[in-house]
């Protein structure tokens, strides 16, 4: 058994390939990652899949409870994107772009199996339900607990569009611009107005009663 000192410096730096990829890409801008993917960088593809497949899955469930339909949609999107490498247009916000894609894909797949009017009305009206997560400052006391209930009631009164916009804005941290694109608004200010109105209607529940 021989100890090879030359080997030791090299061997100490074993890092997991999977972590290495996250490390390489997480500091890059969406634009750079997308360009790398477009140029055929397999690592960039793997990074995209790692980061976005799970959140696309979660997002997809807002449209349908059919897990296999959502899996197929995610699969189709990535297969499509991989096949279009080399000719993809620039993407400044990957999450926004992929949300638009999966939404389109799921609705297309739903239309193939269901009647159109059913999708538009009942199925989607109940989607994008919001839950006020237990933030400490809301539940510290009984009055706060009561406030939380009131706020939750207020949120439940919002329209599906308003809920969706709030989730995209606060939970998903997307910009007005991205939200307008995802929600098919011609102008960004429509997204601004939608969120502003939702907030105005909730204002009294957010402020503590004095």
């Amino acid at each position: 058994m021989n100890i090879d000192p030359k080997k030791s410096s090299e061997a100490k730096h074993i890092t997991l390939h999977s972590q290495e990829i996250v490390r390489i890409f997480e500091s890059k801008s969406d634009c750079e990652i997308w360009t790398a993917f477009d140029k055929g960088d397999e690592m960039a593809f793997n990074y995209l899949y790692r980061i976005y497949a799970p959140i696309l899955y979660q997002y997809g469930f807002q449209f349908s409870r059919d897990s296999s339909l959502i899996q197929d949609s995610i699969q189709n999107i990535f297969i499509y994107l991989r096949s279009k490498r080399g000719e993809l247009s620039e993407v400044a916000n990957i999450k926004g772009y992929l949300y638009r894609s999966i939404q389109r894909e799921i609705i297309k797949n739903l239309k193939a199996t269901t009647k159109r009017d059913q999708i538009n009305s009942s199925a989607l009206e109940n989607s994008f339900k919001i839950e006020i997560s237990p933030e400490t400052s809301f539940i510290q006391s009984e009055t706060n607990s009561l406030r939380k209930t009131k706020l939750q009631n207020g949120i439940d009164q919002l329209t599906c569009k308003q809920r969706k916009a709030l989730l995209l804005f606060y939970q998903e941290e997307l910009s007005y611009n991205e939200i307008a694109q995802i929600m098919d608004f011609k102008e960004v200010k429509t997204a601004r107005k939608l969120i502003y109105r939702a907030i105005t209607s909730l204002k009294e529940f957010i402020k503590p009663a004095k």
Binding site: P54, I74, I132, S133, E135, S137, F138, L167, Y170, Q171
Partner: peptide, 30 residues
């Protein structure tokens, strides 16, 4: 503080985590 608390507390009511086996199965298919 109120605004910050509100922003942080907005979350999906329904959460669906992608199980590891589904994650890998879809990856392989792609």
């Amino acid at each position: 503080m109120q605004a910050a608390t509100f922003i942080r507390s907005i979350d999906y009511q329904e959460k669906h985590l992608m199980k590891n086996e589904i994650y890998l199965e879809v990856f392989e298919k792609i």
